[in-house]
Amino acid sequence: MKLQLTYSFLKTDIDLIEKELEAAIKSDSAVIQKASLNLLKAGGKRIRPVFVLLGAKFGDYHIQQVKNVAVALELIHMATLVHDDVIDDSELRRGKPTVKAEWDNRIAMYTGDYILATALQYMTKIDNILAHQVLSNSLVEVCIGEIEQIKDKYRFDQHLKDYLRRIKRKTALLIAISCQLGAISTNAEEKVHRTLFRFGYYVGMSYQIIDDILDFTGTEEQLGKPAGEDLRQGNITLPALFAMEDERIKKKIERVHEHTTKEEMSIIIQSIIDCGAIERSYEVSQKYLKKALETLDMLPNQRIKKTLAQLAKYIGKRKF
């Protein structure tokens, strides 16, 4: 089933959010507006807004109110991407030139800061202090997570818990709070929004592990970057961690650096695939997915629960 079909009943609201996103990035600066628009038009799964809308369905749902949270979360994601491309020195994102490639680093910094400020402007339309506290705490955590990621680059002696903590901050938190903030913004019960946070957290963990698997199993065409690029840049992900339990593979992986060639990388990737690290990583991802689905049992609203379950399963099984 196509991802969009699982939440087709939200189509009108999602279209509204898409229009609002375009309106949000309007700027007096032609450069900022064009840079932001290019990024917006490059697409993206809009997973965070969808989770916001679904979370909001557990409370007193009014799209005119909820859309502010959905737009804010997607803008935060966009701002992070613009700055990430400066961090990673990336030329392409979703097959299109990045802001830093089309303009330069400085313009990318201004654009990212502008988009983040726009996100906070949207959030201030939500007069619920808990929503702001949840979001601001998470943003601090996300930043610390990114700093930790730099710190952990090419650190081959790291443990599973280092990896899990990192992906929690890097990915799972924003998905978790997307679900939770949707519910908070519609005044859902505390128990409900906390449960939604847990659901989103488990889905986010599963999502990132799949992403990390695909970095080794996807093609350059599917990924928009060469396979094994995360490892080449020093990010030690779950498949690499599992593979390093084999001393011979560990020695090969420890020799990876930013100038390792495509040919050298393909030998290492093959070793990671052959030793069963991919299957083991997939199992961990499925465990998180299972936990996400179990969490749903604690929630009311059968229809939305079903959609959340379908969405979680889709994410847990996606191929690219």
Partner: peptide, 20 residues
């Protein structure tokens, strides 16, 4: 460069946290 980008983002998130 990487840490300069992240430091700026981090300080920015702290302002939001304080005012929240």
């Amino acid at each position: 460069r990487q840490l300069t980008v992240l430091a700026g983002d981090y300080f920015s998130s702290l302002y939001y946290k304080l005012l929240s």
